Computed example of a mutant assay.
Amino acid sequence: MKKKLSLLLCMVLVVSLLAACGQKEPAPAAGGEDVAFEGVKYRLAHVVNENDSFHIAAEKFKALVEERTEGKVEIELHPNATLGDERTLLEGMQMGTIDMGVITNGPIANFVPEVAVFELPFLFSNREEAYGVLDGTVGKEILKKMEDVNLKGLAFAERGFRNLTNSKRAVATPNDMQGLRIRVMENPVYIDTFQALGANTVPMAWTETLTALQQGTIDGQENPVVVIHSFKLDETQKHLSLSRHTYSPATIMMSLKEFNKLPADIQEIIEKSAQEAAEYARAVNTESEEVQLQELIERGMEITEVDVEAFQAAVSSVYDKYRNQYGEYMDKIQAELNK
């Protein structure tokens, strides 16, 4: 009897040990809180120079994150397209070979089509309208959509209201644009907008545009005042038309793969710091624009105010074309603006 009891106890012990060996360790909570965070160094890239609002946003973001994480997260800045053009940066963030970026809204539309709704012509009358939508429910919803393509949208910074420059003539009405070869971003909304205005559109990466302007293979381009000023486009472009045809956001973003590796508290710091950096850069942009315009005039650029109503009428077909694609967001934006 004793032998049988001993044998039974041994069998119970063996089964218990086998069961214990088969158990998995509890999975760490989302965000990696259960894993000790020793620190990380990121590369943040953009395609413009150190005088641009992108770099201002990047510097502020870097300072806030490094201070709030007590140096556990370091951010190394790479301006001037040293890591590639914006499409290359976006693809790199998808794969995790680029960590962070400040990216113009236009190229993002090739990955997340919904963001193009923000750049429908004459959608916003002023900055305050744009900020309310971008920082509100619509903006947050579209930032979230970036996760579907392995990107983490952190906050909307600013490229600003875009204006037309060219080397040929003053442009005050759409008729003045007939036949001008205008560089636009590789974005269907921009292409359709400028074709509706009568221009010959030339989709082109920004990294190629300066050379094309210098060589005269294109007549003009469109960008906010800060870009026109910081890249000294007055050296090749005689005429600046204050069309303010589109408000262009920019996104402070990072690789979703890298974001998901971070503990929840670090994720929260990064998101909060990105929003504050975006708002800071917007304020600097607003304060600087009048000064930059005056300097462009002093450097010989001729400034023209445009017939906004004529421009709006000329691009009505763009809204008709994109109603099926962006109608839901067009309605949501209009509801936000009407509050």
Rank of each mutant, 00 (worst) to 15 (best):
176 D>F: 00
225 V>N: 04
215 Q>L: 07
165 T>A: 11
226 V>M: 14
172 A>N: 01
217 T>P: 04
169 R>M: 07
225 V>P: 09
226 V>R: 12
205 A>C: 08
171 V>L: 08
162 R>G: 14
178 Q>D: 01
164 L>N: 06
207 T>P: 05
185 M>S: 02
207 T>K: 04
191 I>Y: 13
202 V>E: 07
203 P>M: 03
202 V>G: 04
188 P>E: 06
200 N>G: 13
216 G>N: 09
171 V>C: 07
169 R>D: 13
182 I>N: 02
162 R>L: 05
195 Q>S: 12
176 D>T: 00
201 T>K: 09
208 E>W: 01
210 L>W: 03
199 A>I: 05
197 L>I: 01
196 A>E: 15
183 R>I: 08
203 P>A: 04
162 R>A: 08
175 N>E: 09
186 E>W: 14
166 N>H: 10
218 I>K: 03
182 I>M: 02
204 M>N: 00
222 E>W: 15
222 E>A: 04
219 D>L: 12
226 V>T: 06
176 D>N: 00
188 P>Y: 10
218 I>F: 07
196 A>R: 06
167 S>M: 13
168 K>Q: 14
195 Q>C: 05
178 Q>V: 05
191 I>E: 11
186 E>V: 11
163 N>R: 10
183 R>F: 15
164 L>K: 11
162 R>D: 15
217 T>S: 12
192 D>Y: 09
196 A>L: 15
186 E>P: 09
217 T>L: 04
223 N>Y: 09
184 V>G: 03
171 V>W: 03
185 M>D: 01
216 G>S: 10
215 Q>I: 10
172 A>K: 01
167 S>L: 11
218 I>A: 10
164 L>I: 13
201 T>G: 09
189 V>Y: 10
199 A>H: 15
208 E>Y: 02
191 I>T: 06
190 Y>S: 08
197 L>V: 01
173 T>A: 09
216 G>Y: 14
197 L>F: 00
213 L>R: 10
183 R>P: 04
213 L>F: 12
212 A>S: 03
209 T>P: 11
200 N>Y: 09
174 P>I: 04
166 N>A: 12
194 F>C: 06
218 I>N: 05
192 D>Q: 12
191 I>H: 13
181 R>K: 09
191 I>W: 03
218 I>C: 03
172 A>T: 01
223 N>A: 08
164 L>C: 12
189 V>N: 15
169 R>F: 11
208 E>V: 00
194 F>K: 11
210 L>K: 09
177 M>R: 01
167 S>G: 14
219 D>P: 05
198 G>M: 00
191 I>N: 07
168 K>S: 10
208 E>H: 02
220 G>V: 12
208 E>N: 01
182 I>Y: 02
216 G>Q: 11
179 G>A: 01
166 N>F: 14
200 N>P: 08
220 G>M: 13
165 T>Q: 07
173 T>Y: 05
183 R>S: 14
219 D>Y: 05
204 M>F: 02
206 W>N: 08
173 T>W: 12
208 E>M: 01
215 Q>R: 04
224 P>S: 09
194 F>L: 11
183 R>H: 05
